[in-house]
Simulated scan of single mutants.
Amino acid sequence: MYNYLDWIIPYYMDDYLSLTDEQEEFFDHATIQFLNWHRTNELSRYENFIVGLKESQAVPMSQQQVLQFFDNAEALWTSLLRESMPYLLGLSTQLSEKQLKEINGALREDIKELETKYGKQSDIQRREFLREKMYDVVDDWLGSVTDQQAAIIRLWSETRKNTTNGWLNYRNDWRKEFIALLNRRHSANFKDDMSNFLLNPQKIYKHTYRLAVSENRRHLAQVIADLSTTFIPQQRRHLQHELDKIIRDLKELRNQ
C-alpha cells in the first residue's frame, strides 16, 4: 500500500473536500514532495524503532520500557505531522467559505458515525469489545494466547477507565476548534495557532478525560510488560519472526 499513497491520500481527501483545479495541482505536488521526504528520512527511523523493539524482546520488558516505546512512537508521528504542516497550512489559506462548510459537514458526519457505532454501547459491551480486540492483537503477534495471558487481558479490560464518552466529546471539541481556526485563516497568527493546535491536540482535553487517558496509558504499558513475562519460547520466536518481516519490508521500501 505504501507505494500507492500518492493515489490513496488524495482519494481520502475527497471525502472531506472538493478541490479546485489549482488546489488539486498544489495538493498533488505537496503529496509527492511529502512522500519523497518520508521515504528518504522516516522509513529508516521506523526500521530502527522496530529493531529496538525486537531486541527488547529477548527478556521481559518493564513498564518504563514500554512507556518509552510509546513516547518514541508518538515522536515519529509528530515528526510526520510537523513535516506536513507547511502543506496543510498552504492549502488551508486557499479554502473558500463553501469548502469550509464542506469540511465541517464531513467532520460532523464522522462523529455521528462514531457515536452510532460506539456511543450507544454499554460499559459491559465496550469492555467485551476491547477484550476481544486485545485477544486478536496478542494472537496475531504471538501466534496464540495462553490461559494466563487471557486472564491478564481480562483483568485489564475490566479495570481500565472507560473513556468512550470523553473521546467522543473530544472529537467534537476538536472539530469546533479546527473550524474556528480555519475561519481565521487570513489572520496574522493563523499559521502559528493552527500548528500549535494540530501538534498539541491534548491541550483541549477535558481534565477528567486527560487523567483517564494518562491512567489508561500507564495501565496498558504495565499490561504489556506483564504479558512479556509470560511469553513461552514458541511465542517469542513468533513475535521475533513478525518483527523481522516488518524490518524486511521497511528495508525494501526504503531502497525502492
Rank of each mutant, 00 (worst) to 15 (best):
Y2Q: 01
D6K: 05
W7S: 10
Y11V: 05
D14L: 14
T20Y: 03
T20N: 06
D28G: 00
A30H: 01
R39V: 03
T40Y: 15
E42G: 01
Y46Q: 04
E47D: 11
N48A: 12
F69W: 00
F70T: 05
D71R: 08
A75Y: 06
L76V: 06
M85N: 05
P86S: 01
L88N: 04
G90L: 08
K98A: 15
L100V: 04
E102S: 11
E109D: 14
L114I: 07
D123K: 14
D123R: 13
I124V: 14
R126N: 14
L130Q: 10
R131G: 03
E132L: 07
K133S: 03
V138Q: 11
W141G: 07
L142Q: 03
V145E: 11
D147W: 05
D147E: 09
A150T: 09
I152M: 08
I152E: 12
L155R: 14
N162D: 13
T164V: 15
Y170C: 02
L182E: 01
L182F: 02
L182V: 04
H186Q: 15
H186L: 15
D192T: 08
M194I: 12
S195H: 09
L199Q: 07
N200V: 07
K203F: 08
R210N: 06
V213C: 01
S214G: 06
E215H: 06
I224Y: 06
A225Y: 12
L227W: 00
L227R: 02
L227I: 10
F231K: 04
F231S: 09
I232Y: 02
Q235G: 07
H238R: 07
H238P: 05
I246R: 10
N255C: 09
